[in-house]
């Protein structure tokens, strides 16, 4: 557990470091105008979905790591409502196999609040997604709230395109009510992905 926390802390630090790298002159430039109010972004990412932990622990659990590392992808759109500040949405998907041989499918749809900055050719972002996700396992499933928080680093490869990577923490509160409230769980995943950003 300590190791996991250390890894997560390091990743968070890496994501946050660019916050301190803002340049005063660049602030007026807004990354060549690409981070100005009215600009738009489409992003596409793919990577690994790493299961971290599920809370609370289950008294009947016998396996320490019931989920394996899986794959994730996302398609997002953001609109700059102010310089550097975006709102938008994302459509994600993730698969993880279970120790029992099944596949967990997670498909979140979320609204995004994002913040972008940078100095050419590097641009940085942090974002918060809040929405809902479909959870499917062996033909059964449910819909749960969903949130993810994280950021990314991208390098501009052309006037419109940037390539890079991002790290996001996924929180899936699977809520149950009434007599089934004991089934409520809070699942935590880490998304580490590479992606492309298109500015227009």
């Amino acid at each position: 557990m300590k190791r996991k926390i250390a890894v997560i802390g390091l990743l968070t630090l890496l994501v946050a470091l660019p916050l301190f790298a803002q340049d005063g002159d660049e602030n007026q430039n807004y990354f060549g105008g690409l981070h100005r109010k009215g600009s738009q972004i489409i992003s596409l990412t793919t990577g690994a979905g790493i299961p971290l932990f599920i809370l609370p622990a289950d008294a009947l659990a016998t396996e320490a790591t019931p989920l394996g590392v899986g794959a994730s992808f996302s398609l997002g759109y953001q609109y700059f409502v102010a310089n550097r500040l975006t709102i938008g949405g994302s459509l994600c998907g993730a698969f993880n196999t279970t120790v029992g041989g099944r596949t967990l499918f997670v498909a979140p749809v979320a609204f995004r609040l994002g913040y972008w900055w940078g100095k050419e050719p590097m641009e940085y972002t942090v974002g918060l997604d809040v929405g809902a996700t479909v959870l499917r396992l062996s033909g059964d499933g449910t819909i749960s709230p969903f949130a993810k928080l994280g950021g990314g680093v991208f390098t501009q490869v052309s006037e419109a395109w940037s390539l890079g990577g991002q790290v996001f923490w996924w929180l899936i509160p699977e809520l149950h009510f009434g007599v089934n409230s004991d089934l409520t769980r809070y699942a935590n995943f880490l998304e580490i992905s590479v992606g492309a950003v298109y500015h227009f």
Binding site: L60, A61, P66, T98, L104, L137, S138, T142, E174, R185
Partner: peptide, 8 residues
């Protein structure tokens, strides 16, 4: 419970 199932 999706995650309860997975945990067990």
């Amino acid at each position: 419970g999706v995650f309860h199932e997975i945990q067990t």
